[in-house]
Every structure is written in C-alpha cells, then in structure tokens.
Design a protein around this nucleic acid. Structure first.
Length: 1063
RNA sequence: GCGCGGUUAGCUCAGUGGUAGAGCAUUUGCUUCACACGCAAGGGGUCGCAGGUUCAAACCCUGCACCGCGCACCA
C-alpha cells in the first residue's frame, strides 16, 4: 500500500475482491473437508423470488447470513451457504401474462399452456438472475456453484416424489371443499395467503315472508302468479319494520301481522348472494323463531323466479347467535364457509351463483348475471328496495379476507382441490424449544449447540424464542393445506385420471402395456367391484412404479394414477389418462429446500451416501422473517422430519421487519423503499451492511434511515484512515498480525516487547480483549446490533480517540524514523531507546489492527480484505490462515492467561491510562468552562498522586494541547484561585494569571459545589438509613462509602477554590 | 375476544435490583501535519400511569392507558 487515498473509495475495491474470492473458490463448500476438527456449518438461503429485486429486507436478511457464514469460516468451519431462487408461481405467471397482454395483446389461453411456459422460461433466463447479481454486490459469500432453482429438473423431480409419497400415505387427497378463491388470479389459495382487513361497508336488513304464515298449509303455497313483492310493494320499509318484524331484542315469538303474514328480517353484508341462499337458519333455542323451524320463507331474489322456486326452508342450527343481527341467518352454502358447514349438516342444496372471475352467473338472476360481485351488490340492494324488502341499511365495518398477492377480497368458493394433511406434526411441534420449558443449564451452552457436529440439545431454537409460541399455536390449530393452484407456471400435479365404465376395459387400448395393465386392473376391480367409494391403493409393482387409486360409483370407475416416472406417465396418457391441469403451491416446493437442494433423492440408501447431505444436513442456522413462519419455516420443519427423519435446522433467527423512519412498512406505492443498489453505489456495500446491522436490534423491527448508511460509510472511512495513519508511520518490523505471538518470539523485530509497554498499551490491550469477548458473545447470541455497537465503541472511542491520540506522543510525525534525516530533533524522542519504544508502539498498533480487521471482517468484508492486504497482514501467514484472504484468518480469541501474563496485564493494568484520560477530560473541561482560547497552548501544572514517568507527562501534554505540563512536588501550593481538577492520578492546575475570567470561574465553581453537594446528600441519605447499612451487601456498602468520600473531597476542593477567588 | 411486542434524551434505541447510557440531531469552538465522512467540550431524561415487593425499582409483581403486530371472528 504505497499511496493511500485520503478517503475510502469502496467502488474501486468491492468488485476486485468479490471476483478474487469467487475465483479462488473461497465460497465453495467441500463436504470432503468436513472432519471432527473442521465441523460443518450450513445455511440455506430463503430463496428470493426469481422475479424479485433486492430490497432492504433482503439486505438485512442476507447480511446476517453472510456475517454468520463468514464468522463460521474464521472459526475454521467448513461452510456451506446454499443460494438459489424460487419460481414464485403467481407472481411470475402474472408478470409474464401482463407482458404478453401488453406486447402482443394476447391472453395466456390464446397461446396455450406449452407456449406460455416457454415464455416464462425465456423471461426467467433473461431477468431471473438480477437478484442473484444484486446479492453478490452486497458481498454475500454464497456457494454459487450450488445455486438452485425450484424449477430445476432435479428439484421438480423431488417435488413430484414428495407428492407421490404423501399421496401414497393417504395424506394428499382431492376433494370438493370450500376454498379461498382469488377472483383476480383465478386460483385457490391456502388459508395463510388470506389476510383479514377491516372494510367499511353496510349491513343490510331485508325482510322475507314466511310462506306458511297464513297458518293453513305446512306445504309450500303454490301461488306462483302472485309474487310477494306484488302484494307488499305498497308498504314503505319503515312501516314494515315497525309492523310484524320481530324486534331482535324482544324475545316474543314472531307472529302474523295485520296482513296475516309473518315476516322475518335478515341481516347481511352480502345481499348479492341472496339468490344462492338455500335456507334460513335460526337458533332452535330462540323463542322468537323456534316455532318457525320447518316452515319456509320466500327468498326475494332473483325476482323473476316463480314463487314456488323461491321457497327455502327455515332450519334450526346452534351456530346461529341470537344476539347478532336479527338472529335470523341466511344460509348460502356455496359462498360462505360457515354456511357450507351448516349446509352439510342439513343436507342443503348448493347453488353456486358466481363465475370464477367474481362475476355473477345466470343462477343469480337476470338483473345480476354478468355483473361483478360488487356491482351486483348495489343492484341487489336496488332490487330489494324496489320490492320493498329492504328494511335498513347501516354503515358497518367488518373484516374481509383479502388475497395477499392480488389485494382483492377473496371469495369462498366450492371447488375441487388437492389438500394435504400435514405430516410429522407432533414431532415438529415437540422439537422447538419453548422458553419456559428450557432448563437454565441449557441456556448457558448456547454457543456449543451451534455449528458443532453433535448438538448438545436435541431441540431446535428460535431467536428470539417468543416466536416458538406463535409456531406452537399455529401447529395446534392446523388445518389441511390446499396445495393446488389453477396456474400453469409451477410443478404440475403428477396425477393422471380416467374414468371407465365397469367392464369396458377395451377403452384402454390394445398395446402390450395396456393389456398387461388391463389384466391387472380387471382382476383387482372384479374383486372390489362393489358400490360406493373405496380408497384402496394398488401398487403395480413388477410392472410399474405408479400408485393407482380408484373409486367405484354407479357402475363407473375413476382411476387416479400418481407417478414420478416420465415413461409411465406417457403410458398412462396412451391409455387415455389425462394429467391433472393444476400446479402445486410454490410453498409446496420451497418446504423441501433444505434437503432438496443438497442432492436428496428420497432413496434412503442413496441419500445416506450423498456427501453434501451427510455433511451439511441438518443445517445450522436459518435466517428469515417472522412473516413466513407458517408459510415456510413450520412446513420445512415438517418436511424435514417426514423425509429426512431429522430437523432441517438447529436455529432459526427471525429478523425484524424493515420500516421507514416513520415506522411504516416499506412499500412500492408509498415510495419509501430505498433501492439498496443505489445506496451501495453511493456509500459502499460495507456501509449499508454496517448501518443496517447497527440499527437492527434482536427481535425488533428496524426503522431504516439513510443516515444509518451514512454512519456506516463514515465508519469505514474512519477505519481506513486509522490504517492509513499507521501505514504512514512506516514498518515496525516483521508481520505482527500473528495470533497470540508465543513469548519465545518476543525478541523478533516487530513483535511486542512486554517490557517496553506503556500504560496506554496495557489499556488498549485490555480494551481489545474485552472487545473480542463482547463481540464473540454478541454473535453467539445473534445480537448483531450489539456486536456492531461494541466494535464501534472499541474502535472509534477507545482505539482512535484515546489510544492513537496518546500514541502520537511517542511517534514522530515524519515518515522515516531515520534520526540522521532530522538533525533538528536531537531530543530523547530520537534516542535509540525512544526508537525502540516507538517500534514497540507500532507493534502494538499492528497487533490491535490485525485483530480489529478480523473482528470486522464478517460485517465489513470488502474494506477489511483491502486493508488486510494493504497493511501487509496477509504476508508471512500460511495460505489457509489469512495469507490468501482475511476470510479464513482465524477469528480473534480473547487473550489467554498466558498472554496476559506475558504482556503484564492484570486486572488493574488499565487503571493508570484510564485515570490519565479522565484527567485529560477534566483539564479540557477546565479550559472550556473558563472560556479560554481553545487554540492557545496553555501551561498546566500537575501534582501527581504517585510517581509518573516522563512519557506519561508527554501524553498528558499532547492530549491537553498544553504548551507544557509542569510536574510539581507534593509540597507545592497553588496560588489562591488557581482553577484545578483532580482524580486518582493527581491534581491538575490551570494557572491563568491574567487570563482568567473570575466571573466565569465563580459560576463554574458554584455549579461544581452544588453538584457535589447534591450527590453527596443522596449517598448520605442512603447511608443514614440503618435498614440500608444493616441489610446491604458489604461490597455495595463499601462502594457507597467510597462514593461519599469522593464527593466530599470534591466538594471541599471546589469550595476552597471558590473561597479563594478574589472578590 | 385471545396472544405477543413496545412505551427511557428532540429522534432511533441500549440498559436483568445498587451513581440513567450510546448514536443521530442540537449548541459552542477548532483548516491540531490519519480522518470536516473529522476533533474537542456542552446542553438535554420526575425511565407511560397507579399500586405493590425491597434497605434499594427503569429493571421484579399486579392493574391500567396508549402504540404496533399476530391469531380468531357474527351473518
């Protein structure tokens, strides 16, 4: 490093080192290298959407993973950070469909499934790599040789295997159920993809006539010519409301009104679904309505239907809450989940009045058919008004489920879908450690459980562990997972179906394969050919691997063939079987991520010999957001147990959610989401990493502010300049960066000679030791912001602000410490002794910087690598110990007892320097309070408490910006009124003859006395309390006594000075 | 409704029972020869409220208020 720029320029450094790391294979994991001494450490990346662009959430998440990976490498582990992307079914399909519409004015149906999928692949090849390139910019040390995509052929095969396996186990089934239907994307969704949002709408009350109200008939009145609207249309709603309608709070039975009819009022938020009502339900215990059960009402919509077709029964069902609404519930089994359940209980007909796209169909009646559901709602209200059925219309807020992705209200819809009954639920539930259940002893051993080959605890840990409760709760109330999606882009369900008339086997054709199969089928079905459903499985072993499932009903067989074999599926197709058109939920592929990316095949014998799986599964850590705890984390755990027989990861770290500085979520519409790449370009990758980590406390959301990145840049610049300063001092000899140099080598030039260490050196070495401990501990407990703040404090406040500044007293300014070149400097500083001291100080600096760079490397990979080489620390180190790259230089260890002994560091070794720095602050304070010219070099007088070497005085002089620091004897007495300050080191005077502003000094001293007195009294009060002195531990009592003495002394001194001030 | 988290300096947050902290912002001063992306010195807080436990509470307990999040949900 010959010429060092004044400021750190990240742009010229980052690409260079990233390319270097990749070329040298620094990120590549090799399972062969894993041994007991070199344990494996692994993380699988939460695969970002292949359509995605890097956002701040990715920055947070991936920086953490990178820190963990880099730290693990420095710990000497074999690290696999496995990257990849996710095919993001709905998002990607939507994007390509949109493009198609825009560029070619075509729908996906226009070009067909095969062509459409081709287009998606083209799109993926072109744009799919963007986010990966962005991760590289951030410095992520992923093993790119193992990059995976959830639509890779191997991965697709794994998804199919898993599907067929679960199908075989009877955990996957197809059924007609109520699902969450997204009318925008026209697919079913899982419960997790539905977000409840409060919506402002209206509660409509409408009235219906009880058909049997005349008391004559229990049979529906066939009065087709006269629809109820014609007879009641003359009445105004309010008249009706006050008439026969029972008061919801009343409790009196609903009886015929003056017109001889009984009217019921029904409350609904969705009047457009009235045509789909197939019953009206009341609570059988409700005295108002119980007598009506079994009678019918006349459904008001659609209007045009003849009266007898509108009659629907009044049923009794406990589900109905009599407090709510009017206590009368309209039951729409096709369009409401709860209603569907009621319908099932009462065997009600199901009338689906909507199209898949959310428009009404012809069953909704002429006036609604073709309208969008929300439009239809308005029209339905109009119709009700027209016929006089609408009683009330009140603003109402309720919660409506929205499709998370499309942000439109979901529509409960009855449809045929595939469901998964979750596997391995109990073991997955039990494996996660809950805070209250954990033994205290285990908490201590936290660091050991991470990354080590054999975990001490068999449990999985969540960080912060409160998420374990959320996880547990979800698993306890778990519902079957709707896994089919009506999309084209994704893993198509590997099931082929055909229905065959009983005995009509010739339908299968006459091929050899078909004949053999038909024979088998024939034999089997002959035996089982009884009416009803069966769920027997036929494994046609010997002939094929397909799992066949069949049902028999009404003389027809329905066959379902599930297979992963391309050859066999072709055969099924030849036999007229057709593949299920649906694809699987994207999460149904990502839940396999931790092992499907590692060469898993599902064949136990094979997998147990797959090196990657053997070495790296289970993975060590998973880093993700709590928002996908159900979508991904929980499901991966179940898949891990089900298919690998083991947990997929030992620790899960949940990041916070990145928000803007006002606490709002980052969103595209708000425009509050900064582009990380712009920030990287502006401030550097290290800066954005540092800033993000610094402001991301464990388990809390992160309020992001560009200021944080700026701080990161400033920090990098500080690091840069501290190294630059060191570099300008020239060589101290041999490479000093060796870890814990053994005492035997101490005589080597450039190594630290303990006999030459000053109090400052002792102090910084102890501070370094503390820093190493704190950073290591913080990382072991995933407290990244604590780690960063510790580093910040150590490096900036301790090393730069105090140590380097103090060191300047012992370091000549000139670049070359060749004495002959500077004849004007003939003082002690340039004596051979001083030169030795100087070199020793440089050696200490190198020692500290060498450790510091390594401590920073996981957080700031680029600048530390640049400086590591630039400072020459890489020289003379073995290739695999930092010689090639700082990436694998050993992580700094706290100083051992041996090292501390060698350096002469006991627990009090930092006391002198600490007192010195405190006295400097006091002295600077004096100067300031007395309003003395800060630039002027002043004379200070020191009366030391003990003896102080001359070198210490030099340091004081420099740090106080003094002209001179004159040391005086104990007997020396200051002139009256000389401002002073004192601490353990001694008493510091600032003789100010002629300079002093007495008024300012009086104010200063008065304030000082007051403060001392207040503090003194606080302590006195405590000590005066007998309860305190009796019960308090001796140590605390002693502290208080000492504190009292200190304040008393200070007060006395300040008071004396005040008294001595000339009037 | 149930659960979780939060409430400490203007802002963002540390702080596991014993003298209230950091960064940013702010004030003042400084072209001190590594760094103005810097240096130095300040100002600024009855730790959300009310009780309780304790010699001692920001910290432990109880209740309340407010903010945020999750789950559930009644038409």
């Amino acid at each position: 490093m010959t010429e060092i720029p004044k400021a750190y320029e990240p742009q010229s450094v980052e690409d260079k080192w990233y390319d270097f790391w990749v070329k040298q294979g620094c990120f590549t994991a090799d399972p062969v290298r894993v041994t007991e001494k070199r344990p494996a450490y692994s993380i699988v990346i939460p695969p970002p959407n292949v359509t995605g662009m890097l956002h701040m959430g990715h920055v947070l998440n991936n920086t953490i993973q990178d820190i963990l990976s880099r730290k693990a490498r420095m710990d000497g582990k074999e690290v696999l950070w496995l990257p990849g992307t996710d095919h993001a079914g709905i998002a990607t399909e939507g994007m390509v469909a949109k493009q198609l519409r825009k560029e070619e004015k075509k729908s996906k149906q226009d070009i067909g499934r095969e062509e459409f999928i081709k287009r998606v692949w083209t799109w993926k090849e072109k744009h799919g790599g963007i986010i990966i390139a962005q991760l590289k910019k951030l410095g992520c040390s992923c093993d790119w040789t193992r990059e995976r995509f959830t639509m890779d052929p191997d991965y697709v095969r794994n998804v199919q295997r898993v599907f067929v396996d679960l199908y075989k186990k009877g955990l996957i089934y197809r059924g007609k159920r109520m699902v969450n239907w997204c009318p925008a994307t026209q697919t079913a969704l899982s419960d997790e993809e539905v977000e409840m949002k409060p919506q402002k709408g209206f509660m409509y009350h409408f009235k219906v006539e009880v058909a049997e109200s005349m008391g004559s008939a229990t049979v529906p009145v066939a009065d087709s010519g006269v629809a109820p609207e014609s007879s009641s249309i003359h009445l105004k709603p309010e008249e009706r409301a006050s008439g026969a309608t029972p008061d919801a709070a009343g409790g009196t039975p609903a009886l015929p009104g003056p017109d001889g009819k009984i009217w019921l009022t029904i409350a609904t938020t969705r009047p457009e679904t009235i045509p789909g009502d197939t019953a009206v339900a009341v609570n059988p215990k409700d005295p108002r309505y119980a007598h009506l059960i079994g009678k019918h009402i006349v459904r008001p919509l659609p209007i045009q239907l003849p009266r007898e077709q509108k009659l629907i029964p009044i049923i009794g069902d406990e589900h109905v809450d009599f407090e709510f609404g009017t206590g009368v519930l309209k039951v729409t089994p096709a369009h409401d989940k709860a209603d569907f359940d009621i319908g099932t209980r009462h065997k009600l007909p199901i009338v689906d009045i909507m199209n898949p796209n959310g428009t009404m169909n012809e069953l909704a009646g002429e006036s609604l058919a073709g309208l969008d559901r929300f439009e239809a709602r308005k029209v339905a209200v109009e119709r009700l008004k027209e016929i006089g059925a609408l009683v009330e219309e009140n603003p109402y807020e309720n919660n409506v489920g929205f499709s998370q992705r499309a942000d439109v209200p979901i529509e409960p819809r009855l449809s045929e879908q595939w469901f998964l009954k979750y596997p391995s639920v109990e073991v997955s539930k039990a494996c996660v450690e809950q805070e209250e259940r954990r033994a205290p002893a285990l908490r201590e051993g936290e660091t050991e459980t991470r990354g080590a080959g054999a975990p001490r605890s068999a449990k999985m840990r969540f960080h912060p562990d409160r998420w374990a409760k959320v996880y547990d709760h979800w698993l306890t109330n778990i519902q079957d997972w709707c896994i089919s999606r009506q999309l084209w882009w994704g893993h198509r369900i590997p099931v082929w179906r055909k229905s065959i008339q009983h005995g009509d086997w010739k339908q299968l054709g006459t091929s050899k394969w078909a004949t053999a199969l038909a024979m088998t089928l024939h034999e089997l079905v002959e035996i089982k050919a009884t009416e009803g459903y069966t769920t027997e499985f036929v494994n046609l072993s010997g002939q094929c691997e397909t799992t066949l499932r069949y049902w028999f009903k009404n003389g027809t067989w329905l066959f379902e063939a599930a297979t992963v074999s391309d050859v066999e599926s072709k055969e099924w197709e030849k036999l007229g079987f057709t593949q299920d058109p649906d694809v699987l939920d994207t999460w149904f592929s990502s839940w396999l991520w931790p092992f499907a990316t590692m060469g898993w095949t599902g064949d136990k014998a094979h997998d147990s010999n797959t090196p990657t799986l053997r070495a790296f599964y289970p993975t060590t850590d998973l880093v993700t957001g709590p928002d996908i705890i159900f979508f991904w984390v929980a499901r991966m755990i179940m898949a891990g147990y089900e298919f690998m027989g083991e947990m997929p990861f030992r620790n899960v770290y949940f990041t916070g959610i990145i928000r803007d500085k006002q606490g709002r979520k980052m969103s595209k519409t708000l425009g509050n989401s900064p582009d990380p790449l712009e920030l990287i370009a502006k401030y550097g990758a290290d800066a954005i990493r540092f800033g993000t980590m610094r402001s991301a406390p464990l388990g809390q959301d992160v309020l992001f502010d560009e200021k944080d990145v700026e701080l990161g840049r400033n920090f990098c610049n500080k690091l840069w300049n501290a190294c630059r300063f060191r570099q300008m001092q020239g060589s101290a000899g041999a490479s000093p960066a060796n870890e814990g140099a053994p005492p035997a080598q101490s005589e080597v030039e450039g190594e630290i000679n303990p006999t030459l260490l000053t109090s400052d050196d002792h102090w910084i070495l102890l501070r370094l030791d503390t820093g190493i401990r704190e950073v290591s501990d913080a990382l072991a407990s995933y407290n990244f912001s604590t780690a960063v703040q510790t580093l910040y404090r150590f490096f900036w406040s301790e090393y730069c602000d105090w140590y380097v500044e103090a060191s300047k007293a012992a370091l000549p300014v000139e670049r070359h410490p060749d004495m002959s070149a500077y004849p004007q400097h003939t003082g002690s500083r340039f004596s051979p002794e001083a030169l030795k001291l100087r070199n020793n100080k440089l050696a200490v600096m190198d020692f500290v910087l060498g450790h510091t760079l390594r401590l920073f490397h996981p957080f700031l990979p680029f600048i530390t690598e640049e400086l590591w080489h630039g400072m020459g620390f890489s020289k003379e180190l073995p290739e695999n110990q930092g010689g090639q790259t700082i990436m694998v230089a050993p992580w700094p260890k706290p100083l051992s007892d041996e090292e501390k002994n060698y350096f002469g560091l006991d627990d009090t070794a930092d006391k002198v320097a600490a007192a010195k720095y405190e006295l400097v602050s006091l002295g600077r304070n004096l100067r300031r309070e007395l309003k003395l010219d800060p630039a002027k070099k002043l004379k200070f007088i020191l009366k030391p408490a003990g003896t102080l070497p001359a070198a210490e005085i030099e340091v004081l002089k420099l740090l106080l910006n003094a002209e001179v620091v004159e040391v005086v004897a104990k007997s020396w007495i200051a002139d009256k009124g000389t401002p002073s300050a004192s601490n353990a080191l001694g008493e510091l005077f600032l003789p100010t003859a002629g300079l002093i502003d007495f008024a300012a000094e009086r104010i200063r001293l008065t304030k000082e006395v007051e403060k001392c007195r207040a503090e003194k009294e606080k302590v006195e009060q405590k000590l005066a309390n007998p309860a305190f002195t009796e019960k308090v531990p001796a140590k605390v009592l002693e502290e208080h006594r000492q504190r009292l003495a200190d304040w008393q002394a200070k007060e006395k001194q300040a008071q004396t000075s005040l008294d001595d001030l000339p009037v």
